[in-house]
């Protein structure tokens, strides 16, 4: 299988000139197309930092991040924004939908930024809203949706631009058990059927139980990397 993400020698040090905090210390990680990976570890272990660096949201102090054969650590800020728009889908802990847009418009928004045609956008929105089971909530604003429904819209939004992979930072942290189960079912289904790569950072055992690969971080280092059949 082809690697979609290759991280090598990544270090991240906060406050290097005052009181240095080493969030990541020489992390190497390769993730192949279609993987369903969970980054786990205690608070402060560097999960979110690693996820942010993979997503081009944060800069590594050292090391390289290659995504689809492109070293994103060498991209300018503008190029990174463009790169994220084309290749990476994000799902955040707090859903982070645009509150003034409806569910449909939220999903459509990134495609609009990509300059896709109205017809193409409509088709994709309909497909995705059906896939996340919210066809009947298209015109609801985020405030009119439950937490679980909002997170499903966030997944649909992340999938809309047809990204290479999805990065999800604690996606179930604010969800109840039923919503978590629904969301995980949905993501697992998308992973299996459309071969979409998912990388989660999580504390949630329910997510960890569904992951086919579990990478454990402690003090900014990978301490274990387990592949398993689920």
């Amino acid at each position: 299988m082809k690697n979609v993400i290759s991280v090598s020698g990544i270090t991240k040090t906060y406050n290097p000139k005052t009181i240095p905090v080493h969030a990541l210390q020489g992390v190497d990680l390769e993730i192949e197309q279609g993987e369903f990976t969970a980054l786990v570890g205690p608070s402060g272990s560097g999960k979110t930092t690693l996820l942010n660096i993979i997503g081009g949201l944060d800069e590594a102090t050292e090391g390289t991040v290659i995504i689809n054969d492109q070293d994103i650590t060498k991209l300018s800020d503008g190029q990174l924004i463009q790169f994220r728009k084309e290749h990476i889908g994000f799902v955040f802990q707090a859903y982070n939908l645009i509150p003034v847009l409806t569910a449909k418009e939220n999903v459509e928004f990134v495609m609009l930024l990509q300059g896709r045609s109205q017809a193409e956008r409509n088709k994709r929105v309909n497909e995705l809203m059906a896939a996340v089971g919210l066809s009947d909530k298209m015109n609801n604003r985020p405030s009119q949706l439950s937490g679980g429904q909002q997170q499903r819209v966030a997944v649909a939004r992340a999938l809309a631009p047809k990204p290479t992979f999805i990065l999800a930072d604690e996606p179930t942290a604010n969800l109840d058990s039923k919503s978590t189960a629904n969301l995980l079912d949905m993501m697992a289904e998308l992973n299996k059927q459309e071969n979409i790569t998912f990388v989660f950072s999580t504390h949630d055992q329910r997510v960890i139980d569904r992951a086919r690969r579990v990478v454990t971080l402690e003090d900014g280092k990978i301490v274990s990397d387990d592949h398993r059949d689920v």
């Binding site: 503008g78 463009q82 728009k85 955040f92 509150p99 928004f109």
Partner: peptide, 12 residues
């Protein structure tokens, strides 16, 4: 929100 929008690819 501005952070989110730039994260998902909205040009500054």
């Amino acid at each position: 929100e501005f952070g989110i929008l730039t994260s998902i690819g909205m040009n500054r």
